[in-house]
């Protein structure tokens, strides 16, 4: 009876998992297939019919040369904003998470509480005030007006805090202190090397958040040469006749070209995910001490 139950629940699990696989994957597969077809073929043919390389070449050429290689420029901007923000965020959030978890100082609980609340606070609630702040120091339109707000990543601090407080035993650190390490060395030699999964996790979440952030650059960067990819995509959407029949077709951006731009926008996050995947779920700490 028990074995029967187990087989049933397993079969049911697989059916559900496969159904969700279809839900998650069909849009991605469709997206990858669509630049191989012309806009007309997308409408008239089977959604998963194969197209031709020639069509792909055309869509890529049109998309990349659109408005003097705007797409490459947006890609470059996205990279600068995202990685600039991550670098600063990592440098500050890992030590901060460690400090909050494993040192005692006046105001620690307050800082922890504020971090949690700021993390929960809708980031967009700060976008307009950040805009005014940047405006007052004449930073609007500069890369720093986006990079610096990106570098403030309380979620990363909180992740580091959770990791250090729940997965790095105090005994381990106490042992290092007894062996003569000062506080900095305890952090650098014990806590930091253990933090590799959390560094991957923070990098990863910060990258996805920064890369896909829309509202902040939308407000901060009025000039299209400074656009990151998401704003670029909106720009394309507003000019394409595919969704705005009123627009003249002279820009040549139809659905296959839009699909190319979308693929370019999503590819970096996918690549980062491939690299981060291993440490992402490897179990946060596989037994450095046994209790």
């Amino acid at each position: 009876m028990r074995i029967f139950n187990r087989v049933w629940s397993r079969t049911l699990s697989y059916i559900v998992l496969l159904a969700f696989t279809a839900f998650f994957m069909v849009p991605v597969i469709w997206l990858l297939f669509s630049p191989f077809k012309t806009d007309h073929q997308l409408v008239t043919e089977n959604p998963f019919a194969l197209g031709t390389l020639e069509n792909l070449g055309h869509a890529v050429r049109v998309m990349f040369t659109f408005e003097d290689y705007s797409l490459l420029n947006w890609l470059k901007n996205s990279a600068i904003y995202s990685f600039g923000g991550i670098a600063i965020a990592l440098i500050f959030s890992i030590p901060a998470g460690y400090g909050l978890a494993h040192t005692q100082f006046i105001g620690r609980r307050t800082l922890l509480g504020v971090t949690l609340f700021v993390m929960i606070m809708p980031a967009t609630a700060l976008v307009l005030p950040l805009f005014l702040e940047a405006n007052s120091v004449h930073a609007v339109g500069t890369p720093l007006s986006v990079i610096l707000p990106f570098s403030f990543f309380p979620f990363g601090v909180y992740l580091a805090y959770i990791f250090y407080s729940s997965s790095v035993p105090k005994d381990l650190l106490a042992a290092a202190r007894i062996d003569g390490c000062n506080e900095w060395n305890v952090f650098r030699r014990i806590a930091l090397p253990l933090a590799r999964p959390i560094i991957a996790l923070v990098t990863f979440f910060a990258f996805v958040a920064n890369w896909n952030n829309f509202f902040l650059p939308f407000v901060m960067l009025p000039n299209s040469t400074n656009y990151p990819l998401p704003i670029g995509l909106q720009d394309l959407l507003s000019t394409t006749p595919a969704f705005n029949p009123g627009q003249g077709g002279q820009v040549g951006i139809y659905r296959p070209e839009l699909a190319v731009a979308t693929i370019v926008a999503m590819a970096p996050v996918m690549i980062v995910f491939l690299f981060a995947q291993r440490s992402l779920v490897s179990g946060l700490l596989a037994g450095s001490t046994k209790e």
């Binding site: 460690y98 800082l111 700021v118 403030f152």
Partner: peptide
């Protein structure tokens, strides 16, 4: 305690300025 402040100081500045 001193070490604690050192660890969180950089983050605190970001928090103050952008949070």
């Amino acid at each position: 305690g001193v070490a604690g402040y050192a660890f969180v100081s950089g983050y605190f500045i970001l928090l103050a300025l952008f949070g």
